[in-house]
Structure formats: structure tokens, C-alpha cells
Computed example of a mutant assay.
Amino acid sequence: LSGGKIRVLATSGATRNKFMPGVSTLIEQGFKDMAYNEWFGFFLPGKAPADVVQKANAAIRTALADKDVVAGLAAMGLEARSSTPAELAALLKADGERWGPIVKAIGFTAES
């Protein structure tokens, strides 16, 4: 990037990437439906007790607030963000609604 060996044409987030603020988004370039931020999540079995879910979430939120964890993730170009179990569920639902029809249309399966 800054060494001139790679030229990033755009980023896919709804807003500019904090690690590359000089690079415009696809939305800014006129591709209004091309916004996607990758994310990583922690999952427990579906029948995990609510208190276990809350304790795990609290521990993860604490870890993601630690300056060394934040710096380690930033070194890989990742921004540390935490959420609640309800927020993750809403994100999964929204992503399923957005990408599900595309996955179905192309016939993708886990075995593909």
C-alpha cells in the first residue's frame, strides 16, 4: 500500500476502512449495493444455558477491550468489536436474508 507495490481500488464496507482511510468504498464509487463487512463470531451449542452464554459473552467482551488484543487484531487489519448475543442473532438473520437467495440461486451447498 504505502510502499507503492499494491494499489487498493476500493474497500467493501459501508464506511471507509480505518486502516486505509484514503481508499474509497465501493459505495462511494457508485456501487450502491456493494457493502459488506466481514465479521467473526463465537458460537456455543444451541441449547447452551443462558447463564453460560452471558458469561462467555462477558469474557469475550472483556478480551476484545484489552489493548494487547486490539493491537494484535489491528496488526492483521482487523478491528476489535464486540456485540451481545441478540446483536449477533440479528446479524445472522440479516446476512441470511441477504445472501440466502443468492446461495440458493447458484445452487451452492456445503458439499459443493
Rank of each mutant, 00 (worst) to 15 (best):
M20T: 02
W39I: 03
L92N: 14
A89D: 15
R61L: 08
E28G: 03
T62Q: 07
E97I: 02
A58E: 14
K104I: 06
A10Y: 02
K18G: 12
A65Q: 08
L73K: 10
F42C: 08
D66S: 03
P85W: 05
T11F: 01
T15H: 14
S112Y: 10
F108R: 12
P101E: 15
A35D: 06
F31G: 01
A110Y: 04
M34C: 12
F40C: 04
A65I: 00
D51N: 12
G72E: 02
G30V: 05
K93V: 10
R7T: 13
D68S: 02
A105M: 04
L44M: 04
Y36L: 15
I60G: 01
I106L: 10
R7H: 12
E87N: 04
V52M: 07
G41E: 07
S2R: 15
V8N: 03
V52A: 05
V103N: 06
S24W: 00
E111P: 00
D68L: 02
W39Q: 06
P85H: 03
S112C: 06
M76F: 11
E79R: 13
D95N: 15
M76R: 14
M34W: 15
S82I: 01
A80C: 10
A110G: 09
K18H: 11
V69A: 07
A58M: 03
N37W: 09
L88G: 00
K93R: 13
T25R: 07
V23A: 01
I6L: 15
E79H: 13
L26T: 09
A75L: 11
K93Y: 10
L78K: 05
G100N: 10
S2C: 10
R98H: 14
Q29L: 14
Q29E: 11
D95C: 04
A89Y: 02
K104Q: 14
A86G: 05
A10H: 01
K104G: 05
I106Y: 11
G30F: 01
L73F: 05
T84L: 09
L1C: 09
G13Y: 10
A105V: 01
K32M: 12
N17C: 12
A86Y: 02
A65T: 02
V103D: 05
V70K: 13
M76I: 03
F19H: 14
I27M: 07
S12M: 13
L44Q: 03
D66E: 11
A94H: 06
A86V: 05
V53E: 10
M76Q: 15
K5Y: 12
T109Q: 06
K32D: 14
V70D: 02
I6T: 09
N17E: 11
R61P: 00
L92F: 10
K104F: 07
R61F: 03
T62R: 04
G46L: 02
S82T: 14
F108N: 02
G46K: 03
K18A: 13
G13T: 12
A35L: 05
D68E: 11
K55H: 08
A71I: 05
S83Q: 03
K5N: 15
N57R: 04
G100Q: 09
K67T: 11
M76C: 13
L64F: 14
P21F: 00
V70E: 06
M34T: 06
A80I: 08
E111N: 13
S12H: 11
E28Y: 04
F42G: 07
F40R: 11
K32C: 05
L44A: 03
E97L: 14
K18T: 10
V8P: 01
A10G: 06
T62N: 06
F31A: 05
K47V: 02
L9Q: 08
K67C: 00
D51F: 07
R16T: 02
